[in-house]
Simulated scan of single mutants.
Amino acid sequence: MRRRGAHVGIAACLLGLLAGCNGAAKAPDGKPKEEASIPVEVAQAIVGPIEAAYRGTATLEAEDEATVNAKQGGVIEQILVEEGQRVRAGQVLARLETERLALEVARAKSALDKLEQDHRRNESVYQRNLVSREAYERTKFELEGARAAYDLARLALQESEIRAPFDGVVSLRHIKAGNQIQAGSPAFRITRMDRLQAQIHVPERDIHKLAAGQKATLRVDAWPAKTFAGEILRINPVVDASTGTVKVTVAMTPEQPELKPGMFGRVEILYDRRERAVLIPKDAVVTEDAQHSVFVVQDGRAHRRAVSIGYSDADHYEVLSGLVAGDTLVITGQSSLRDDSKVEIVNAPTAAPDAKASSVAAQDGLQG
Rank of each mutant, 00 (worst) to 15 (best):
M1P: 12
C13L: 14
L15C: 13
G16K: 08
G20V: 15
G20T: 13
N22P: 00
K31Y: 04
P32N: 09
E34S: 14
A36R: 15
A36P: 12
S37H: 06
I38V: 15
E41Y: 04
A43D: 06
Q44M: 13
V47Q: 03
Y54C: 03
G56Y: 06
A58C: 14
A58K: 05
E61C: 00
A66G: 00
V68F: 06
K71R: 15
K71Q: 13
G73S: 15
G73A: 11
G74H: 08
E77D: 14
Q78P: 01
Q78N: 15
V87T: 05
A89T: 05
L103V: 11
E104P: 03
V105M: 10
A106G: 02
R107D: 14
A108T: 04
L112S: 03
L115K: 08
L115W: 10
Q117S: 05
R121Y: 01
S124Y: 06
Q127Y: 02
S132N: 10
E134V: 13
Y150R: 10
Y150K: 13
L152E: 14
Q158Y: 11
E161C: 04
E161T: 01
I162N: 04
L172V: 00
R173Y: 06
A177D: 01
N179E: 11
Q180G: 11
Q180S: 02
S185P: 00
T191F: 08
R192I: 00
R195S: 08
L196V: 13
Q199W: 00
V202L: 02
H208N: 12
A211Y: 07
A212E: 12
A212P: 05
A212F: 08
Q214P: 01
D221S: 13
W223H: 11
G230K: 04
I232F: 05
P237R: 07
V238G: 01
A241Y: 10
S242I: 01
T243V: 04
T243M: 10
K247L: 11
V248N: 05
T249Q: 07
P254L: 07
Q256F: 05
L259K: 09
K260F: 02
M263W: 08
G265W: 09
G265T: 08
E268Y: 02
R274P: 00
L279R: 02
I280D: 06
I280L: 00
V286R: 11
Q291Y: 10
H292T: 04
H292C: 10
H292I: 01
V297S: 04
R304C: 01
R304T: 02
A306P: 10
I309W: 11
G310K: 08
G310C: 11
G310F: 11
A314F: 13
Y317V: 09
V319F: 07
G322F: 04
G326E: 00
G326W: 14
T328L: 05
T332I: 12
G333T: 09
Q334E: 06
L337S: 03
L337C: 01
D340S: 11
V343T: 06
E344G: 09
E344T: 12
V346G: 03
A348Q: 14
A352Q: 08
P353F: 02
S359A: 10
V360M: 06
A362Q: 12
Q363E: 15
D364E: 12
D364T: 15
G365W: 11
